[in-house]
């Protein structure tokens, strides 16, 4: 058994969280609130040191870059709703971030996702082995069928209806695969926690 205080804390908190499997109880609630408090504190520190300090305050304080005052003031406007008279000022940081974020969405999605994914869909149908040919054909048909399913401007009848139906089948396989993948990821986390309890804490295995 471990004599490390940190391991004991982590183990007891782990057991407190798992106690929820029986029913909601004070141990779980304590652990849950510790988690919320620690997470909020952690992210406040990380965001400050990784984003706000290097991008806004460091240029102002260490390099005398006065223009950095603009984003600092804009950021502070986030707290404007605390003063009802000037609460509308919160719209300025909101619109600034929305403007930049939306511009990044337009440019990055087109360049980073749509074009590369489209390019990856143009797969060779000749000069490849029969297995690869079938896989490539399935990918091309699957992408088109899924897109047909999301085409709502025309009633899904006839060829369009068949395409949409095929799209549903492909999506069902994808959802099933994603579900299985998620379950396995959670199970591996569970195994990790059980291993921690049995190995690091109790030293049984």
């Amino acid at each position: 058994m471990s004599w490390n205080v940190g391991v004991w804390i982590a183990s007891l908190l782990t057991l407190a969280i798992y106690s929820f499997l029986y029913k909601d109880n004070p141990f779980y609630k304590v652990a849950e609130n510790i988690f919320v408090g620690v997470s909020a504190g952690y992210w406040a520190v990380v965001l400050w040191f990784d984003f706000t300090w290097p991008n806004l305050f460091e240029p102002l304080i260490n390099r005398g870059n006065v223009i950095s005052l603009i984003p600092i003031i804009v950021g502070l406007m986030m707290f404007a709703p605390l003063i009802p008279k000037i609460s509308w000022l919160v719209r300025i940081p909101l619109t600034f971030t929305m403007g930049v974020a939306m511009a990044l969405v337009v440019t990055q999605r087109i360049q980073g996702e749509i074009f590369p994914q489209l390019q990856a869909t143009f797969l060779p149908l000749a000069g490849v082995s029969p297995g690869v040919l079938i896989s490539n054909l399935l990918i091309i048909i699957g992408v088109i069928a899924t897109l047909i399913y999301f085409y709502f401007s025309k009633e899904h009848k006839g060829v369009l209806g068949f395409g949409a139906k095929l799209g549903i089948w492909f999506m069902m396989i994808a959802f099933g695969a994603s579900f299985g993948y998620t379950v396995m990821a959670r199970i591996s986390l569970l195994i990790g926690r059980v291993y921690f309890l049995l190995h690091n804490w109790l030293g049984i295995i």
Partner: peptide
């Protein structure tokens, strides 16, 4: 399964979501 039918459907969904996101971005701008 992960590389063929899953990729095909996810790619179709991704195209739809991205186009929707871009049109929403333009509406916001």
């Amino acid at each position: 399964v992960m590389n063929v039918p899953n990729t095909a459907a996810k790619r179709g969904i991704l195209f739809g979501a991205d186009l929707g996101l871009i049109s929403m971005a333009l509406r916001v701008l």
